[in-house]
Each structure stands twice: as C-alpha cells, then as structure tokens.
Design a protein around this nucleic acid. Structure first.
Lengths: 328, 328
DNA sequence: TCAAAAGTTGTTATCGCTATCATCGATTTA
DNA sequence: TAAATCGATGATAGCGATAACAACTTTTGA
C-alpha cells in the first residue's frame, strides 16, 4: 500500500480512502491512485482491514448434510445473495444437529470472525442448540420452528401438505395415506400436521402415517406395504426421493400409477418431472429461502430491526402421478 | 489477550505460546493460562493472527453449480477433510466456467486471503482459466484433464465407461448406444472416449452418441428416440438423471427394462437403487475425490511436493436394469 | 562448586490497514 | 477585505496477535 501511495504521490491514507470512500477524494487524485493500484496490481490485505474495522466480509453457514437437495439449494441461494453484497460464505456441514455440534460449528466460525451466521437446522434436536447461541453474534435460522429468539426463514410446510392432501381429496379419494419423514424433522412434523388437519376437517379416516427416513429405500419399503392394501388409492409422500421408492414398489406389485393409486411428493427435485409417471409434488423455493435468510442476516448485521420471521409459500405442481379415483 | 495474561500473571507472549506451542511452556504456567482463557472465555482474533503469520486457516472452493450431486458431494468431502485439519472452507459457486468467471472467483477468495483454492471444474471451457492462475497461490483442480500445470484429482471417467460398456457387451448385446453429456464437459468426453474405445476394440458398430445436457428431461427426449428403434437393446447413459428419463421413455413406449433394453447409468446417486428397475450404474466416489484434493492442496500449502495427479477408479454397480439379451 | 547449556518467560517491533484529528488552501460569507 | 467555512489530504496511533531476540532460571556435568 505504501508503494501505491508513493507511486501516486499521495499518502497511504488517501489510498485507503480511494478504496473505501471514493467520493471523498478528488476525481483526479482518485484516478491517479487507481492507476497506481492497477499498475502494481495491489490487493488490500483483508486481515489487516478486518483487524481494524472489526468486520470480515465473511458469513458462516452451518448446515445439516449439504449433499441433500434442500440444504444444497438453500446454501446456493445464500451464496448467490451474499455475492451480490460482496460477502463470502464459509460453510460448516454438521452430521448431527445436537446442541453440542451446533455450538462447535458456530465456535469455529466465530473463531474466524465471521460477521454473521445462518444455521440451516431442519431438525427438532437443533432447538436446544439454537436457544444457546452467543448473544453478540448475528444469527438467522432456516427451517426451524418459529418460537426461537432469532429470526427464522422457512417454507410453510403445513400449507404445502394441506395443498397436497386437498388435491388428492378433490380427486375423489376417500382418504389419503402418508409416508412421512422422521418425526424429529421440523419439515416432517409440519407435513404430518398439515395432512392430518385436512383429513380431520373433512372428517376422513386418518391412517397411521408410515415413518420413513427420506431415503428412496424407505419409500420403497413402505410402498410395498401400501401396495398390499387395496384400500390405498392415494398417498402423500413427504419427499420426492421416498416417492421414487413408493412408485417403484407400487409398480412391482402391479398397481398402476395413477390409475390405481395417486401419489404426491414434496420438494420438486429436478428429476421429479421425469420419473415414470411424472411426479405431482409440492415445490419448495429453496433459492428464495436462501435469499431471504441472507437478507434477514444482513439486517441483523447492520443493526436494522428487520422482520423476525419469514414464511414462504410452497406451490403444488400437478403432473401425472395423480388422477381421479376410479369408481368402485 | 492482555487481560488473560494479567489474570494468569504472565505476559501476552506466554499466552500466545500456550495457544500455539504448548510444549514450550511449563505445565503449571500452561494450566494457569488455560484457566484464565476459560474464565474469560477468550478467543484469539484470527484477523490479527493471520496479519502477522500470513496464514488464515481458510481454504477456498470454486465450484460449478453446487446443487448438482457431484459437486455437492465433492464439496462435502473437501469440507470434512478440511475440518480434521482445522481448516475452514469458503465456497464460491460459479454459473459458468469461463476464464473470466474463474479468475473473478479466485480473486474474491484471494482477497480474503485464503491459504489455497480447490477448483471444481469439470468443464472444457475452464482449461483456459486454469492456465492463467496466479502463480503464488496454491491451487488444486478437481475433475479436469491432466495436462494442466496444477495438481488434479479426478475420477477416471474412461475406465468407468469402459466397465459399463464391457458389462453390456458381456451380456450378449450386439452393440451399445450412448446418451452422453454435453461434449464440453470433461466427464462427458471421457465417457464417450471409454465407450467408443471398447466398441472399436471389439469391432462393433458405433452408433452416433446422443448428446444430452445431464437433465432427466434430455434423457427422456433421447429415450423416446431410442425406444423407436428395435435395434436398440443396450444403452449406456452418461448420468443417472438422464438415465431416469430414458427409463421412463422406454417404459412409455412399451419396451421393458431389462428384458427388451438394458440400461446403465453413471454416478450412483442415492436414489439409483430405488428406481424401477433399480439402476445398474457406475459409482463415483466423490467424497474420496474431495478428500484427495484437500490432501493435494495441503501438500502444496505446506510446500511439500506431493503427487501431481491422482486418479480414482470408479466402480460398476450391477443392479436390475441390465440383463442378457434375448435371443432373436 | 561453578560455568556452560538448556529451558522459560519477557520485551520490542511489526504485520497492513483505518479512525481520528490536524493541517492547509480554497471558497464562501459578512 | 478579513473571517468563517468547507473540502481534501496528511500525520499519528492503534487494532491484536506473533517473530525474533534478550533476559533470567534452572539443570547439567566436570
């Protein structure tokens, strides 16, 4: 920086000003400095800068398994939004959402002086960890229940499940079976709640939900069971991967989709439209969740109040895995 | 830090030593310092540290679309490996792999003084960008051709394609059709090369490869074409998502898999085992690629020579989408 | 027993930048 | 015209850590 200053015939302070508050420097001086910067291909040292400003320009994201479609998309959304504001994103992926693992992840990020943290915590067990966060660190949570002391951005799971269930009932099905995610997942319990509420409101029989683990394998296992029961004509599956397994099980048992059984998934993963048959599902706009959570975090960092909680409405996408119930 | 020193009755320097080279401090002093650290819940300031050491403990990853299964898994592998060595990972995801976008991404990371960068660049167009990297920055590339001036870690695509193709021929198919990825992807061209080499070596007819774009949609489109041609009995599809589309197209056209047509995919995405029928495919160990590339990068950062290029062998996973060709 | 060696701790300077306040000339105002 | 104001730039002092060397203590060995 000294060299740049010398070359431009100014002081180091002026160079700093050109880089941070250009409007406070006379245009011709500014130009000279910028030339010198370019000629020496000078890059300011961020460590020194953040040492004195107390800001690093880096955000942390703590996420459960980033290879899953949802977390990966959310992360991507956060990253895109962050880039437009010149923030960089540091990721810590955790394999469990206990109080301890969240605490450790946040500590590691804090140690690197991130300016704020987004925690993608779709799991019940995270709640404890989320209640014991350092109070001086700006934090936003994605996909958790909204009774937390920090801002939350999430897709409204209940509404999504309600739409899926209503859609199936409107096709004339007597009731709707449900293959759910693990109950300690916020998303799973929200979807169960939405599904159940519709059946209750309409006075339909409420079958016991079949507990899956999000994997295609568990969908397949439950699908085999459902296929055996001729009463089953409509299934709401809590995610598209499990739905993939359910589709396979139904077919192998000789039950046609959608003629014999209608199936709705959740997520709208990219390949959902190309399963056989194309899967009706509930689309979650993860990218939007990412954008929103970043916005919330930025508000926090800059000391603005900002909305405390933000819900995003999911959208029912009807394809060919659902059809009117055959009479009889 | 001053406070900690005072509380422990030592100098700041000793506190620093306790944190960095504990073995150079007498056990009792060390204990006193650690107590003070705990009582004041002191956290060293990484900005100050990296200002003086020139190291940040942060790695950068530049990756093409991190929502794709491959890049996401690789990223995850890098992150896990990095954590075990106390590195944090900062991610920049780019939507194109031009020289410019790679340059910008690397610049943004360098600006944050990362200690090194892994570039996940499975695209031909990245080559130009990879040849013009700043020479003073430790860089490792994942999934690129191996004629680069930087270390490369990759899955051996050619071998994977060879195995898939040989498997199909060994089942008695006359030849093997290929739905490929975009040709400017390294992985796609490698798979084409492997597939073609086997057919050539065996003197089989070499059908024109059908160019897809990795999406289930394009697999579906090509699948419709293949389904119309009764000559087609074996298809090697360049990834599992396209294979999903191919399966659907074949079924819709009334052609049974595997009785009429055998299909092999590539990647082994988690749901591949639960498609209908379970998809035979080639498994790429992305986590291992991530681990390896981190290792390579660490060697670079620490000034060790290290292996220049590392290839990982993919593995053929035979499930139920492939079967012997029916005579006739 | 005492000097040399080894082990421990402290002092000082510095990493590269920006906050703060001082300075100085130019412009406006009375 | 002199005083007040303003805008642009500069000088100085840290931010919080570690490197390098200095100083002091303890061990070691003849």
């Amino acid at each position: 920086m000294e060299d740049v200053a010398e070359r431009a015939g100014v002081s180091a302070m002026t160079v700093s000003r050109v880089l941070n508050t250009p409007e406070k420097v006379r245009p011709d001086t500014r130009a000279r400095v910028l030339d010198a910067v370019r000629e020496l291909s000078y890059r300011p040292n961020s460590a020194a800068r953040s040492l004195v400003t107390g800001r690093s320009g880096v955000l942390g994201v703590v996420s459960f398994d980033t290879t899953l479609y949802g977390p990966a998309s959310t992360l991507h959304g956060i990253e895109q939004a962050a880039r437009s504001e010149d923030y960089l994103v540091t990721i810590v992926s955790v394999s469990a959402l206990s109080r301890r693992s969240i605490g450790e992840a946040v500590d590691r990020l804090r140690f690197q002086s991130v300016d704020g943290v987004v925690i993608v915590a779709p799991h019940e067990s995270a709640a404890d960890g989320l209640r014991h966060l350092p109070p001086d660190l700006p934090v936003v949570v994605v996909g958790a229940s909204d009774d937390l002391p920090v801002p939350v951005a999430a897709v409204d799971q209940v509404t999504g499940a309600v739409r899926a269930t209503k859609h199936l009932l409107s096709l004339g099905h007597r009731t709707v079976w449900h293959v759910s995610g693990p109950q300690d997942w916020i998303d799973a319990s929200g979807r169960i709640a939405g599904w159940r509420s519709v059946l209750e409101a309409e006075g339909r029989e409420i079958p016991e939900p079949l507990l899956g683990d999000w994997s295609a394998r568990s969908g397949f296992e439950h699908g085999k069971r459902l296929a055996r029961d001729p009463e089953v004509t409509a299934v709401f599956v809590a995610n598209d991967h499990m739905a993939t397994g359910v589709l396979r099980a139904l077919r192998e048992a000789g039950r046609q989709v959608p003629q014999d059984v209608s199936v709705v998934g959740f997520d709208d993963v990219p390949e959902a439209a190309y399963l056989w048959p194309p899967l009706s599902t509930v689309r979650q706009n993860f990218a939007e969740v990412g954008r929103l959570s970043f916005q919330l975090l930025l508000d926090r960092i800059d000391g603005r109040a900002g909305a405390p909680h933000r819900m995003i409405e999911p959208e029912l996408v009807v394809r060919e895995s659902t059809a009117a119930r055959l009479s009889g």
